[in-house]
Design a protein around this nucleic acid. Structure first.
Lengths: 198, 198
DNA sequence: GTTCCCGCATACCGATGGTATGCGAAAGGA
DNA sequence: TCCTTTCGCATACCATCGGTATGCGGGAAC
């Protein structure tokens, strides 16, 4: 017999786990709360006891997904020694992580539409996006990238990798992933040196 | 007294016009059909006479937005002579067009979530995205860009510009737009020359 | 002028997200 | 140990939503 606090945490985790799978499978709009609570073996009373509503439940799921992605990216970066290698390895790992179906639907497609772009960006900034911004800032500090505002660069790279990840997951071309990495590498490498004179 | 075909077209255009404004203002999910038909001065009967449902109405609106953006991009590109200048001018114009609120909400945020990424990409490919892919292919043909698969590049640049546009519209920094153009120019210029040796 | 057609209004339905209330068992104190 | 409180959750209910079936009225065609 589980204690009350154990049971509470278990119910909450079940709801997040189940809704994450359903959100990933058919998208936020096409999942009803009835299906969620039925799959989780609880009722709407439990759901509304733990979350403010469907949107708040999605927020919890998205946060979890973001943190997992951030962890993967950070781990891949930490496996390298050279700061530049850390940066590129993190980008490659993000590309790989971004092809997972649940990451795509929840983090890349439904996220901005459900929570709005601003809050979506804030959650990203608190997790995976932070690593990108910090890495860029560090590279600028070390002189590996010419001094420049990092904010536009961050969004440029973030958007590029998001869209490429979405495309990668839908193409059947086996060369797509290495091609994408090559294109991304070209862009990243271009950041190291000043733009060549015309 | 308008003829029947005139009245039909007018009702349809009113529905698209009104729903475009409402979709842009509060987002697809937060607009009810009741509000749309009330604002347009018709009833749900008229809406379902012209469209298969809310999603089809959104599809018509998105297509209209995409075509407008494509037209702006094409016009900006055609104003230049040099192929490379046409390319960069088109990119800059897309960045400017992408900061419009209706373009942001409808085309960049709700589009993929409502219609799914695949159909969203198809609509984009038929309008604005086509110019990008064709321009890149043309640059490769002319030798201005090293031979490489253009598909990953297209998605990389498209995603980058989409995200930068979303960010631009939300930042208050007056230097954001020139900074973003500078960052984008750096990336675009990097495509011209082979990656510098390490 | 009669008929037909069609653009659209009206009335209605099931399902959805959300809320109010009640219950039953674990936790805390005597 | 017994009483009380707390709280995690179930039940019942509601407003609103997207969607559908049906009916009407006036322009179009002969």
């Amino acid at each position: 017999m589980p204690s009350r606090i154990e049971q509470r945490e278990r119910t909450r985790r079940d709801l997040v786990r189940v809704s994450r799978r359903l959100f990933a499978d058919v998208g936020y709009a096409d999942v009803g709360l009835a299906e969620i609570v039925r799959t989780a073996g609880v009722t709407k009373g439990a759901l509304y006891h733990h979350f403010d509503g469907k949107e708040a439940l999605f927020r919890a799921v998205l946060t979890e997904v973001q943190q997992e992605v951030a962890q993967r990216v950070a781990a891949a970066a930490d496996a390298e020694d050279d700061p530049w290698e850390q940066f590129t390895a993190g980008c490659r790992e993000f590309l790989a992580a971004g092809t997972a179906p649940d990451v795509q639907q929840i983090m890349l497609i439904d996220g901005p539409a459900v929570l709005g772009w601003t809050e979506w960006r804030a959650i990203d900034e608190a997790a995976a996006g932070r690593h990108l911004a910090e890495a860029l800032a560090a590279l600028v500090d070390r002189g590996l990238i010419p001094p420049q505002p990092v904010a536009p660069l961050t969004h440029l790279l973030s958007g590029a990798m998001n869209e490429v990840a979405l495309w990668l997951a839908r193409t059947s071309d086996p060369a797509a992933f290495p091609d994408a990495v090559a294109a991304l590498t070209t862009v990243l490498t271009a950041l190291r040196a000043p733009a060549p004179p015309r």
